[in-house]
């Protein structure tokens, strides 16, 4: 039972991060019908921004801010930095190709992905960067928390899960309860009709990139608080986020959340009960399975065309 609880906790932590990444994929795909393969690298850049800000603020061993303001500052900085990066990517890599055949922005996305990964490698080196979060406040984030049976739920896990869910709820409210959200929804249904109704399509697309990239930045920091980051990490993280988005139904916000959590649980239970070797393989088996048997995902709508 303890193992099950621990693995569930592992899955929930990992799944929360995947869900944040998947939301970015879904937002952009929903509006532009573009698979933004650079999204995983935006996640990586976010983790690096968080690392840089943490070092500027004295590092984990001697920070100039108390624990909670410090965590907020590094997370918000990463979100802001990634939001700007998202706007730049949209403006220079995707907007000029908006009316080009669909393969063109896809290739451009792959190019941006490699550009970001290798630029970071050239600028900062390929080595792993460790936030050393264990040193923050004498290990408080790892050693304090509460117990479920014999399983400790550390404070850091609670922070990651709560922060991720808060961000998802904020996004959900933004998409469903605001004029901008309604404009995004309208654009995702029919871009041309939305434009004719007076919606500023360019602005809506930029907002989607800002939101998606900011969430990726937050995911980067939340992930890197527990595990080292490095320039090449974005590729696999991006693929997992993409898989989560496909599971949930790409374009669907609740689907992305559910897909991320399902993927996190699948990975954790596979590692815990079947084999540690097969977890990455399983992710892609799930992806292929959904593409073949339920391409619209769990929450997506089948793409039915009137003939």
């Amino acid at each position: 039972m303890d193992t099950f609880v621990q693995l569930t906790l592992n899955g929930l932590t990992l799944g929360s991060v995947y869900a944040l990444i998947a939301l970015g994929y879904s937002l952009v795909y929903g509006i532009l019908k573009l698979l933004n393969f650079a999204h995983g690298d935006v996640f990586m850049v976010g983790s690096f921004i968080g690392f840089g800000v943490l070092q500027l603020l004295g590092g984990a061993t001697d920070p100039v801010l108390p624990l909670w303001p410090l965590l907020i500052v590094i997370t918000v900085s990463a979100m802001a930095g990634c939001a700007v990066l998202g706007v730049v990517i949209e403006r220079f890599a995707y907007r000029p190709l908006r009316d080009a055949p669909r393969i063109a922005p896809l290739i451009s996305a792959l190019g941006v992905s490699f550009f970001l990964a290798y630029s970071m490698q050239v600028l900062f080196g390929a080595e792993q960067r460790d936030y050393d979060a264990f040193s923050l406040d004498n290990g408080k984030l790892f050693l304090s928390g509460f117990d479920i049976g014999n399983v400790r739920v550390p404070l850091l896990r609670i922070v990651i899960i709560v922060a991720a869910f808060l961000l998802m709820i904020v996004l959900w409210l933004l998409v469903t309860r605001t004029r901008t959200g309604k404009a995004m929804k309208a654009t995702s249904y029919d871009r041309e009709a939305a434009a004719m109704m007076g919606i500023d399509i360019d602005r809506v697309i930029v907002v989607a990139f800002v939101l998606g990239s900011a969430l990726a930045g937050a995911a980067g920091v939340l992930f890197a608080l527990r595990a080292p980051t490095f320039p090449a990490i974005g590729f696999l993280a991006g693929l997992k986020g993409f898989t989560a988005a496909v599971i949930g139904g790409i374009g669907s916000v609740p689907g992305a959340m559910a897909g991320g959590l399902i993927l996190g649980f699948a990975e954790a239970y596979t590692q815990g009960y079947i084999s540690t070797k097969w977890s990455d393989l399983l992710v892609f088996v799930i992806l292929i399975g959904f593409m073949i048997f339920r391409p619209q995902g769990l929450f997506g709508r089948p793409d039915i065309k009137k003939v």
């Binding site: 193992t3 621990q6 693995l7 592992n10 932590t13 990992l14 792993q128 992930f223 527990r226 595990a227 080292p228 980051t229 490095f230 090449a232 990490i233 696999l236 990975e267 954790a268 590692q271 815990g272 540690t276 977890s279 990455d280």
Partner: peptide
């Protein structure tokens, strides 16, 4: 490529 070892540690 693994950097989060939580589930390995569980084992």
């Amino acid at each position: 490529n693994t950097t989060d070892f939580s589930s390995l540690v569980t084992r």
